[in-house]
Amino acid sequence: MSTSKRITLQQAAEVIGNGSSLTFSGFTIWRRPFALVYELIRQKRKGLHLIEVNGGPQTEFLVGAGCVDIWESCWVGHELYGKYGANLSRKVAEKAIIVEDYSHAEMLFRFAAASSGAAYAVTQTSLGTDIHNPEYDMLGRAGLRDGSNPHIARHKYRFTDDPFFDAGAQVLVPAVKVDVAVMCVQQVGEEGTVRLSGQYYSDPEAARAADITIVIAEEIVPEEYLRREADRNAIPTFDVDYIVECPFAGHPTGMFGRYDVDGAFLKDFYGRTRTQEGFDDFAREWIFGLDHHGYLEKLGWPRMMRLKANTALNYSPREPKGGK
């Protein structure tokens, strides 16, 4: 039996220092480790380099709170609850953040490369688009591609021709360099075995790409229970450094089999945080002065009961679709 990987939410946030490169589990508005995101905001983390296969509300909260200097990804928004990332948009206009755009598949392949120890990935996606416009290499423009920052590649991308089968132009995109991945999952064992339910998005790649992986689970369960059906497990123990038990850690995002997306909450956030004053006001109401239990208490039992998934359907038939 290895030494315990259990830590608290506060300790988990402390693992992520100022200037860390960071990524998360999940997909747009699903399985994002919000309890940890809120804690990072409370602890006033600065200078984060967020590298995400795709963004979502977690991006918007961290960016709105001023925690993020660099965001490398392809998309941010709240799906049907808010059509774009208003906080990111505002910070881009103010030039308070550097955004490096890749395509969704490029980001995924960059994580897949990192997770298999490859230096880069090769693909044919997005040829001919402005994603490959050399003038739009934003980290390059900022003078950050000089090799001094271990998170930042010397080039945004390179082109090559297929030397093997003459398949034509190929794009090489650098492996991501992620210090910490924070996963928000249904179950983790005492030793770190992760069982995901539902679509697993890009979680296995993210967990293995990062130097340190923190798993925040709805429940910590006996390893022996998970090992009875090892084929159902997505991430092995040695990919995981720390575990935290924290029910409803994903709220307001949703978790397959556990709870739905809180659409009304996201709509409210989207509507109220177009301005910095609006964001600060929202943060005072929902983040500062609360811990995770205080947050859940503020949300209240009726709201959480409504979001709770039916165990046969894996979603909540009570939560009105579309957050209406």
Partner: peptide, 20 residues
Amino acid sequence: YLAPELRLTGSGGNPDINSF
């Protein structure tokens, strides 16, 4: 792009699906 009137969502999988 270097001084946008409005930053939108970004690409998502749009170019990837459109490429392939």
